[in-house]
Design a protein around this nucleic acid. Structure first.
Lengths: 245, 245
DNA sequence: AAAAATAAACGTAAAAATGACGTTATATAT
DNA sequence: ATATATAACGTCATTTTTACGTTTATTTTT
């Protein structure tokens, strides 16, 4: 009955990026493909999150950081551990497939799920060994394991979190327009926002700093560029205790 | 290097309750005591969270539910999985002590931490085998393992969450006064709230329902009793997309 | 070079929510 | 009856939000 031995321990990373051109919140996924050698029938043909076993002397956070670095080459990105997934039958459908190495029945794989926010421009997707690819959160392909659920729960957490903290700027280029910010909120939250009110609200923030630059290469009036100052934000930040139930 | 074998898997439960008399947010903790048989020197003398190994065919959620039931007899309480703790040296200081059965060095214990919100009145602390005791969150005793950190992180999550969701009512009796609600917010958030403004705000909520009852046994003007209607809340609830950064 | 088109950027006013504070009402205790 | 303590209500100024209309700057078209 009691089970004080043995499980697999892994981390999985939901990597979010924002495409300012298509105005789409994207998730970085890895292609899985495996065919039967004789019949050539595809056994696995889907996408999954990046993840890996946690090394023996590694903290959970470090493990997630390592996995992201291996995939993207990036470190220091916004990272949040948002949930552990560990139902006993979590990977049972997949148990003789790849990624799950030498697993026997009844071996539980607990995964600690993180999400990362990064600037799409920082990642070179074409140049990696993982066949990684960005997928719009609203048009996810066939997803393996229970990773669809993990992605959607990460997304829910992100939706809540972006309302109360300026994490959105982790997803934007260093220099952005007010409309970029609005597009991003609209994509994440799947809502429409009044541009005039939104603009005023954002511009009034002390930590949104107008630059001496405008957009280049646009075929209409170029917009003012801004940057986000984390320093200023942290200095003037004071926790709001506004009860909103 | 790689570690695809094995670790201990447990759940730990931070149980929150509110004492309307002392106006204190409390945590339910279990006494640990162990003395050296010869010298009688105390080896362990502190408090810890309830927790246990996850059973072989048990989901993480079910495991937490079981642990709470064993401690309090209660089921169906508000429950949230808020973080996994799994640093490789997490329990190393404690490795030859009780609770950690037959552990060897280098065995990692990952714990999935939950917090529960319950009505203090529902729990009979005196009548349990665990020597469980309520402790004000602001006057915690000596705490074993890394459970102090776990408690404080649960508390942080609760503080954030109670601002945007009416989970506070999980901590109050079924019938409560407006001042009870205020006391609870003040305790949790460690702030002072203007009674008149707070009262207006709360009373205006459709899901706060005045009863045909007043306080009894108080030595001053008895206050109106209210109840919280989860049904009405869920019916009229619509996600607010107010961006507050 | 002027006009048209388009998106950026600014403005205004009503409504709602919040914050700060004064006053009244109702029960119990003396 | 009167005092007392707490519950409960009220008012007003300020801030924030919502809902729109207007102007400005730049590019493209004529």
């Amino acid at each position: 009955m009691k089970n004080n031995l043995i499980q697999n321990l892994s981390v999985d990373c939901v990597v979010f990026g924002f495409d300012t051109n298509t105005k789409s919140l994207n998730v970085l996924l890895i292609k899985r493909f495996l065919a039967d050698e004789k019949t050539n029938t595809p056994l696995v043909d889907d996408y999954v999150l990046t993840g890996y076993h946690v090394y023996e002397n590694e903290s959970l956070d470090d493990s997630a950081t390592r996995v992201l670095k291996e995939l993207t080459g990036l470190t220091g990105q916004y990272k949040k551990q948002f949930k552990a997934f560990g139902d006993p039958d979590r990977l049972n459908n997949e148990k003789d497939l790849i990624w799950v190495e030498n697993q026997k029945f009844n071996v539980r794989t607990v995964t600690i799920a993180y999400y990362f926010l990064l600037k799409t421009e920082d990642v070179d997707v074409t140049n990696n060994t993982y066949q990684a690819k960005w997928h719009p959160i609203n048009q996810l392909p066939k997803i393996g394991f229970d990773h669809k659920q993990i992605i959607l729960e990460a997304y829910e957490d992100l939706k809540t979190k972006c309302l109360s903290e300026p994490i959105i700027f982790e997803l934007l280029p260093d220099k952005f327009t007010i409309n970029d910010v609005q597009d991003l909120y609209e994509s994440i939250l799947n809502i429409e926002i009044d541009n005039r009110n939104f603009r005023r609200k954002v511009i009034n923030k002390k930590y949104i700093i107008p630059l001496d630059e405008k957009q280049v290469g646009v075929s209409k009036r170029p917009a003012q560029l801004y940057m986000f100052s984390k320093d200023i934000y942290q200095k003037i930040y004071q926790k709001s205790y506004l009860i909103n139930i």
